[in-house]
Each structure stands twice: as C-alpha cells, then as structure tokens.
Amino acid sequence: MAEMLKGGVIMDVVDATQAKIAEDAGAVAVMALERVPADIRAQGGVARASDPDLIDGIIDAVSIPVMAKARIGHFAEAQILQSLGVDYIDESEVLTPADYANHIDKWAFNVPFVCGATNLGEALRRITEGAAFIRSKGEAGTGDVSNAVTHIRKITGEIRRLQGLRDDELYVAAKELQAPFDLVKEIAATGKLPVTLFTAGGIATPADAALVMQLGSEGVFVGSGIFKSGNPSERAEAIVKATTFYDDPDVVAKVSRGLGDAMVGINVSDIPEPHRLETRGW
C-alpha cells in the first residue's frame, strides 16, 4: 500500500495553510496534528489524537494523502480516525501511550497503519500486528538526527545479518528478535522488510534526508524540522529535492543554500531517559 509514497517526504502540519505549503513544496503526504513534536515536548502534558475538525480541515485543503496519529494502543482513537477518512494512521510514540502492554490490533482496520521502530524485532512485531508501513522512530521534536541514524542502521544492519545466517540458525534469530519465524525467514531470503521503510525523528536539513536515504531509507518524515525553521516553504522544497537526489551531492549542496535558520533543536543526549520518546513501544 505504502509503496506509492516511496522516494517522498511526509510532512507534519497543524493547519490547512501549512498543509497547502507542504503540498505545494512536493510532499507525498501530510501528517495532521495539533502540535508538532517540538511543541509537545516543550509544553508537556498528555498528548492525544487531534480534534476531528482540524483533521477535516486538512483533508479538505489538500489532494495528497492525509495521515493522523493515534496513541499507542488507543484503538478507539484509531476508530475515530478511520471514520474521518484519513489515509493512514500513525500509531505514534509522539503521543502519550494509552496502553503500556499492547499495541493496536491493526488487522481490525481497513485503513493502513504506519508504526515506529527502533530495531528489526520491533518492526516485525508491528508488521505482525498489521502495520503496512514502518518508520524509524528517531527522537521526534529534537532536530537531532542521531537517533534516526541509529535506528535505520540497526534495522538495515539486522536485516543484513539475517541474510548471512544458515537456515538452521534462523530459529534462534527469531527468538532473539522476538518476532515470528516465518517473517524472519522471509526477510533472510529477500533482504528487505515486506513493507515500506521510512526514517523519522530529528530530520531538519536536506543533508539529514540525504544521509538517511543513503543508509537505506525509502523516504522520510519531517516533523518539526520544517515549520519550526525560519523559512518553511523553501526548506520543505529543499528536503523534497534532497530526498529524490540523495546520492547526488551537487544537488544536495545546491538546495542547501540560503535556507535561513534550521530549527534550533535539542541534543538527544541532553534529554533524560524517561523523557525520550523512542522508548515508547513494546
């Protein structure tokens, strides 16, 4: 399902105006939410699914797919989002989890889900629950790309490791990954996830996008990085171009010029462990 988004950029937007800017910049989809992750982080409190009016307004504003976030495990929020007609639901660690043991049974829905993962085992558990699309988690709302790099390297590295194993070693590999054997065996044979893999969490510049694309990502999510920067429209366009020409430094250099201030950002290492979003999800 999510194959059609490949090579593209999905942008967080909080209203119809931002959604139009994203579409005009060449986004392949928008993520409708009330506050971008940087603001959720700054303001604290419980973060929940967005008001249906806000989502309706964004759906009406653009012709590209509209995604929206539900809390981890909050299947009633997901039911609401499906009823609103969103194109994808992101069961997201950016919102406050509703269930600290279970994720949503995504097979129970018609609308496809995207889920975050920090490693291959987590990605495979989400796929087993019905996720049609996986993104690395990174550390949302920071503008620090280091965790996104860690996660995409981890996921792709663990896939490469599986490819090197003998068939009789895949049983233990499945046990260690805490993932179903059949899925592990399939990935060992194909060398890729059975669903589309994007990177999210901390991407703020065209170079960040080029970096994670070269590491094996099939597209990128940009959250706070665009509308928390000095020049959202130009930066959005530049990240779209860098994602397409990720392996051409001349293009990435050209689009990186004169973009003004990137989002200020927070170093992930300055965030105390309990406040990190990447640890949400099980």
Binding site: G8, A25, V240, T244
Partner: peptide, 10 residues
C-alpha cells in the same frame, strides 16, 4: 505510481 503533484513539481 506515486503522487502526481510531487512528480510534476520535481
């Protein structure tokens, strides 16, 4: 397949 708006722009 993909997004025709993105393809056109690029």
């Amino acid at each position: 397949g993909g997004e025709s708006t993105t393809m056109f722009k690029l």
